[in-house]
Simulated scan of single mutants.
Amino acid sequence: MQGTVDGFSYGLVTPVAAYLMACLGGALGLRCTTRSVRTGGSFKPGWLALGATSIGSGIWTMHFIAMMGFTVAESPISYDRPTTFASLGVAVVMTGIGIFIVGYRGATRMALVTGGTITGLGIASMHYLGMAGMRLQGRLEYDTLTVALSVVIAVVAATTALWAAVSVHGFMASLGASLVMGIAVSGMHYTGMAAVSVHLHGDVPPGMAGDSPATLIAPMLIGPAVFLVMAGVVVMFDPLLVMGDPDRQQPDARRGAAGRRARPVLPGQRQAPSYGEPANWSAPSRSGRRAAHRSRHR
């Protein structure tokens, strides 16, 4: 018996909220990764780890906010907590591997392909491991081609996000990249959900309506949501984001000062008087200096 599946039981509320969480996690992760590229020494791993946790938490939170709207009319749904939180760990760890590869190797083709593939497979693994934690009176079945398409979308989205993290440095450009990343991650999620069908084991006994998915999932989202807010506070109060990059301004000033100090004087060109010299002073020509030298030795 096939179950009646509804992925939008709350209308547009859950897709929009899920998209915003994906954008938030992506924006924080991109800013942290960009910050790590400009930072050396002991702070670089910290920024990369914060970026990986932000992206992983944002994607995981997006997934389960979207799952609040997933219902099967003939069967109540519950979630296995260990499996659900294991999917969060997979998202953070595999995203972290990809970010550390790009963060230390740069935007080379091999680093982007390797890091993007690992991160994309981590996103897809998080999605389907989270689905494996679902408990209902039946089993989930998947369309193979649609699943493969969702994995491809995840890998492409992850590779694009990693490229933007090390190549896009402006705040508005990073914001635009995070919006595109939110679309890609949400598209991967709903493509994966389009592959799902539910085969029920039999009729559900009366009185087994159970709790709503929102009631079951909401408590599990508190921790990652609080983390994303705290990460946002750290990023927003970072001096590099608020005041700009002083390292890029200082070399320009040094080059300007050096240029003023090292300006050569061409032969026959009048040299500007130095401090303490009269305004009508002019440097003697080379022939004048030779005549003065001969007169002193006579």
Score class of each variant (00 low, 15 high):
Ile77Trp: 12
Met68Gly: 08
Asp80Lys: 04
Trp60Ile: 04
Thr71Phe: 04
Gly51Ser: 08
Ala27Asp: 13
Ile55Arg: 02
Tyr79Asp: 06
Arg38Trp: 03
Thr83Asn: 11
Cys23Asn: 02
Thr34Met: 10
Gly58Ser: 10
Thr53Gln: 00
Leu30Phe: 12
Ala49Arg: 01
Thr83Ser: 11
Arg81His: 11
Ala66Phe: 01
Glu74Ser: 05
Gly69Asn: 04
Asp80Ile: 04
Pro76Ile: 00
Ser36Asp: 09
Ala27Gln: 10
Gly69Ser: 02
Val72Ile: 14
Leu24Ser: 07
Ile55Pro: 00
Thr71Gly: 02
Gly58Lys: 08
Thr34Asp: 15
His63Asp: 03
Met62Lys: 06
Phe64Leu: 07
Ala66Met: 11
Arg35Pro: 00
Ala66Val: 00
Arg38Pro: 06
Ser57Met: 10
Lys44Ala: 06
Ser42Glu: 15
Ala52Glu: 05
Gly26Trp: 03
Phe70Tyr: 07
Leu30Ile: 15
Gly69Cys: 00
Leu50Thr: 12
Lys44Asn: 02
Tyr79Val: 05
Arg35Ala: 13
Glu74Asp: 09
Leu48Tyr: 02
Ile55Tyr: 00
Glu74Phe: 03
Thr34Arg: 09
Phe43Trp: 13
Lys44Thr: 02
Thr83Asp: 11
Thr34Val: 08
Ser42Cys: 03
Ala73Arg: 14
Ala52Thr: 11
Val37Glu: 15
Trp60Asn: 07
Ile65Gln: 10
Ser42Phe: 06
Thr84Lys: 00
Thr34Leu: 05
Asp80Gly: 12
Thr39Trp: 00
Pro76Val: 03
Gly46Thr: 13
Gly29Leu: 06
Thr83Val: 13
Thr83Tyr: 09
Gly29Met: 10
Thr83Trp: 13
Arg81Ser: 11
Arg31Tyr: 05
Pro45Ser: 03
Ser42Pro: 09
Gly29Ser: 13
Ile77Phe: 08
Arg35Thr: 15
Gly25Asn: 08
Phe70Gln: 07
Thr84Phe: 05
Gly25Pro: 02
Arg31Gln: 12
Glu74Ile: 03
His63Pro: 08
Thr83Pro: 11
Ser54Ile: 05
Asp80His: 09
Gly40Lys: 02
Ser78Ala: 13
Thr61Trp: 07
Leu50Met: 14
Ile77Gln: 12
Gly51Ala: 04
Ile55Thr: 12
Met62Trp: 03
Leu28Thr: 14
Pro76Gly: 11
Cys23His: 07
Lys44Asp: 00
Thr83Gln: 07
Cys23Ser: 07
Thr39Asn: 02
Pro45Met: 01
Cys32Ile: 01
Leu30Ser: 15
Phe64His: 08
Cys32Trp: 06
Leu48Val: 09
Ala49Met: 11
Leu28Lys: 10
Gly40Gln: 04
Gly46Arg: 12
Trp47Ser: 13
Asp80Tyr: 09
Leu24Arg: 03
Thr84Gln: 07
Arg31Asp: 15
Phe43Arg: 14
Val72Arg: 01
Ala27Asn: 13
Thr53Glu: 10
Arg35His: 06
Met62Val: 06
Cys23Ile: 08
Ile55Cys: 08
